[in-house]
């Protein structure tokens, strides 16, 4: 029988994959997708917890996370577009303007 622990473990694995992607990739768009993956892993943990505790609070928070993620995607992709227009690159290690 599959219980809450299985879903939490899956969510942990997905979160770690997203974290690795955000660290090792150079393409800003892929980094962005990895962040979306981490948000979704957190959502899975929220829904699993909501199901296990019999409380709807987790699902409400997932609703808010989705909204914030959509807003973040819109603004973030606009930033990437502006960045590409100015620097002609989306490689994260070539965008070192603020690096000391």
């Amino acid at each position: 029988m599959i219980g809450t622990a299985h879903f939490l473990a899956l969510s942990a694995v997905l979160f770690s994959i997203g974290a690795v992607g955000a660290v090792v990739r150079r393409n800003v768009i892929i980094i962005f997708m990895s962040i979306e993956l981490m948000l979704n892993a957190a959502n899975l943990a929220f829904v699993a917890g909501s199901n296990s505790l019999g409380s709807m609070n987790g699902q409400s928070i997932v609703f808010f996370v989705m909204t914030v993620a959509a807003a973040e995607a819109a603004v973030g992709l606009a930033v990437i577009l502006a960045l590409f227009r100015n620097r002609q690159t989306v490689a994260a290690d070539e965008i070192a303007l603020l690096k000391w």
Partner: peptide, 23 residues
């Protein structure tokens, strides 16, 4: 580092839920 994070998260989350408890 990602494998380490995954292992520690799985360990922490699995111990947070008693096995077999259906809530």
């Amino acid at each position: 580092a990602g494998a380490f994070v995954a292992a520690s998260l799985v360990a922490a989350l699995s111990s947070a839920v008693a096995p077999g408890s259906r809530g």
